[in-house]
Design a protein around this nucleic acid. Structure first.
Lengths: 352, 352
DNA sequence: CTTTTTTGCACAATCGATGGTGCAATGACT
DNA sequence: AGTCATTGCACCATCGATTGTGCAAAAAAG
């Protein structure tokens, strides 16, 4: 016996202690006691006992009985990235504000894993699900639909459920324009001075590439296909793409658009292998904001996606009855180089 | 009727369909059927039906009955930070490898919130808990203890449960030595050229400060108290500290130690308000690794804490019977400037 | 053809909470 | 005093799975 106290108290324990029935105890502790016309003094007694014994409801039992669990899920591709981790942070805060219990899980951008993870969440009777950056939103939708689970897509749209995404086209236009104009300050620019790296076969990448090409054609008159290098979402692949370019040209493009901060990590890997003076004059645009990325030793324009607004909108949609299957655009913003934005962390109290 | 199919199948549904009893169905589907001597053909039939109907167990019901849920929790101070988010990533991977379901939650460094969140997790009958960077590990311990929940502390130690932490003292020594030596390349250094910013009244900060002071005294002969600026864990407070120093001295210290990447964000906020040429010659040490932080336009030495190893060790400890209340040290490593390390993201498959 | 053993499965209690229903005690009213 | 409404609560089935126990039928042993 190392002081491991007995099991947690249940309504039955409190029932015995108080002399009331278990259903009375339950009613008192879940707040429905006025409706059930329980005497105030009885309620007080039970509440006192509950406090003394540190009673907390077994939420699995409650969830089983009521088939509502109070859980909301957020499915992420990965945690380890400022865009998604700050989204997780906002999500937690908002879910807790609404009295729900947030669950954040990641599925590694693997469609099969995505479905499995969601199945697991469903097995815990979660009430609502945010599907962020899913590789296969419609596959996940099918799983949710079968279980009658309300859900929305965030960041990457599906065709079967309401979606909330960044205005990737507009964001890409802003970003492309910013890097081109900045590069032109240093002299005239030809179409093959401006590249795009990263992204793959998803809606966000398509829209960004479309925005990039449209602006580039408008400002520089052309956009050779070679300037688009969709390397997927992996630092290693992106680094290779830079390496290949460098081997071919002895330098990096004057200006380039990087599809996400994950791809920007690929640039870091490339830079680590080369003296940085060689690249002091590049102009970079990154479709994602990272506070340290913004202060690299060359101008980095970034796009800050408004994860917090997306989450807010998502909750609003889940609150409506039969949300139409629409795609809602949330405006991102252009962040000039050397900018330190505040984030969800700033909402924390830090008692010092 | 919008195609919302009926509720999920249960063992009772399959029981009717197969003609077997619910307990037989249960045994077949949870794998205990050989032990229960169920005929192979019966098992096959039931499994076929289960597949056809997309049966998945209701894990709340299972958890309620067996009082084991298959859930493991990771309690973080915040998501939005590379150290913790990469820890979350490793944690998820390892938990899933073990067939458990990972839950990652954050408690905003608020002791009360920490306890509440853990209470909630306990209400879902989680089996094990990793408490990372808790402000009040022993308070959380009490809650776990009462519920008989196995747990370990990560990153910040408690006195009542096994803890796994970085060797902060050694890490701080390496980092301090690195920045001092590097700064000395540019000329002789006096004790008040080397500062420490960030951290507060926790074990990790104490150890880091101790390491810093020991090395500084050894190399520079003294360490005036003014050189230690424990600003808490908040970018805003840290930025203020830099601002105050700058107002007093017209520059930043030649070299300084920043207690965490969160504090380093405070430096970014400061830099955003000042032309960067002014600070091109500072030498920074940051106790945390961030891939972009490593490429800032001045030398940044970083300490990479081995989150993955800590998680691994944590699982190992939870697997042992009565783990002694020890504090295990995990060695961090010194990362020279302009280094791009690979992380848990690289384990992902990225089909392009 | 018995007796024993083994095989294959059904039954029923249980986990902790919820909520519909019903009933005794009390008070109000005629 | 008798009727009726109200108050205050207990009873019990239920959510979906797990698991100890028991028992019939089939197979093996004698």
């Amino acid at each position: 016996m190392t002081g491991i106290s007995k099991k947690k108290a249940t309504i039955y324990d409190l029932s015995v202690l108080s002399g009331a029935s278990a259903s009375t105890v339950s009613a008192v502790l879940n707040g429905s006691w006025r409706k059930r016309r329980i005497k105030e003094t009885t309620a007080e007694l039970i509440q006192k006992l509950a406090n003394e014994h540190g009673y907390t409801a077994n939420l699995q039992a409650r969830g089983l009985r009521s088939s509502r669990s109070g859980l909301v899920g957020l499915l992420l591709p990965v945690h380890d990235n400022r865009y998604f981790s700050s989204m997780a942070q906002s999500f937690e805060a908002q879910a807790r504000n609404r009295g729900q219990c947030p669950l954040v899980v990641s599925a590694c951008r693997d469609p099969e894993e995505e479905r499995q993870v969601v199945e697991t969440l469903i097995s815990y009777s979660i009430d609502e699900l945010f599907i962020a950056g899913a590789t296969d939103p419609d596959g996940v939708h099918a799983v949710c639909e079968k279980a009658g689970l309300k859900h929305v897509n965030i960041d990457l749209p599906g065709t079967l459920a309401p979606s909330i995404i960044s205005d990737n086209y507009e964001g890409a236009r802003m970003l492309t324009q910013a890097i081109i104009e900045r590069a032109q300050e240093d002299g005239p620019l030809s179409p093959d001075d401006v590249y795009l790296f990263g992204g793959r076969n998803d809606h966000a990448s398509h829209e960004r590439i479309r925005g990039f090409r449209d602006v580039k054609r408008a400002l520089l008159g052309a956009d050779p296909d070679i300037c688009i290098q969709p390397t997927g979402y992996s630092p290693a692949m992106t680094a290779r793409a830079f390496e290949v370019f460098y081997e071919g040209h002895g330098k990096l493009p004057r200006a380039f658009f990087v599809n996400s901060s994950i791809n920007l990590e690929g640039l870091m890997r490339f830079l680590a292998l080369h003296p940085h003076e060689t690249f002091a004059d590049i102009i970079v645009g990154c479709y994602d904001y990272d506070p340290f990325g913004s202060f690299l030793p060359f101008p980095v324009f970034m796009i800050r996606q408004d994860g917090e607004a997306m989450i807010t909108k998502g909750f609003a949609i889940l609150d409506t009855n039969r949300p139409p299957v629409l795609t809602h655009l949330v405006q991102p913003s252009l962040v000039p180089p050397r900018t330190a934005l505040t984030g969800p962390l700033d909402a924390l109290k830090d008692i010092e």
